[in-house]
């Protein structure tokens, strides 16, 4: 039995669930945190979404059938949590999804948990202007250096469509950076 299969078996066994959940947290909390953080931008929001994600994982691990990798399943929960969190936030503020992204990035300079330089800030501004899907694909490819095949399982999208999204994202970022640095 592989390590992952063994972990899943322990997570689905009530008598061993608590200990297995601690192992799961230790192994995945950081990876999921950064994936969420890049979506919601602020640390406090990322913390909320990460907690909600793991609570959902804990409650629903019994229904996990093992048809995908454990990380893919958890990533989809995290991405859904982050997206619904952002949607609620944009409704509350009365702005569009794109408007919210730009608003969040405009607050980055004053964020105590952002110490990026000018280039990092410019990249975040460029990313805020991308559609959700393209930003997600760019983040996974550029920062996580994820393979298209893995991303394809994660996002349930064909490799061809992912390459197209990444290519378009890069073109848009490139053109934005040229424009502001001209």
């Amino acid at each position: 039995m592989s390590n992952e299969a063994d972990l899943i078996a322990r997570l689905q066994d009530p008598s061993r669930k608590e200990a297995a959940f601690r192992t799961l947290l230790a192994e995945y909390q950081e990876r999921l945190y950064w994936q969420i953080r890049r979506m919601v931008i602020s640390h406090d929001d990322a913390d909320d979404v990460l907690q909600n994600t793991f609570i959902k994982i804990y409650k629903h691990i019994g229904t996990f059938k093992g048809e995908s990798k454990l990380h893919s399943w958890m990533y989809r929960i995290a991405a859904n949590e982050a997206l619904s969190f952002m949607k609620k936030r944009s409704r509350r503020l009365g702005v569009s999804d794109e408007g919210l992204q730009e608003y969040l990035v405009s607050n980055l300079e004053a964020d105590p948990y952002f110490d990026g330089d000018k280039a990092q800030l410019q990249l975040q501004r460029a990313l805020a202007r991308l559609p959700d899907k393209q930003r997600e694909v760019f983040n996974l490819k550029y920062f996580d250096e994820m393979k298209y095949e893995e991303m394809s399982e994660l996002l349930d999208t064909s490799v061809g469509a992912l390459k197209a999204s990444y290519h378009l994202a890069v073109k848009k970022i490139e053109s934005y950076l040229k424009e502001i640095n001209a």
Partner: peptide, 23 residues
């Protein structure tokens, strides 16, 4: 194309001990 070069990192940080206490 980014002039000074596109950063490899996002620039995001977390509070000290965040991951240690998260569990």
């Amino acid at each position: 194309s980014g002039g000074a070069g596109l950063p490899e990192e996002t620039g995001f940080r977390v509070p000290g001990g965040y991951f240690e206490n998260f569990q």
